[in-house]
Amino acid sequence: MSTAQEITHEVVAERLRLLMAELLEMEPADLDDEVPLSAFGIDSMTSSVLVADVEKWYGVRLESAGSLGSLTLTDVADEVVAVLRRHPEEK
């Protein structure tokens, strides 16, 4: 692989935290890993924005596109990592 940095759960989670903090106008540190994203204000519409951002960064299309709100930051990071492992060529 030519990427300088290996795609780990932690790397993905931190990138997502920054993306989401920007989208929600929150401090990254206030995004509790275990709280469903809807509690921070992610609804079905902002979900689609986040899905597009994830696709742009990782080339990964999330399965749970319509309902990211019910997932936690950890869940989304897990899904991104899982899809990347399944389809390494998409990276």
Partner: peptide
């Protein structure tokens, strides 16, 4: 209160 907040956020898609 945190446990309750997380539990409620799982059933209500809004700030809790």
């Amino acid at each position: 209160v945190r446990a309750a907040g997380i539990a409620v956020a799982k059933v209500l898609p809004t700030a809790v």
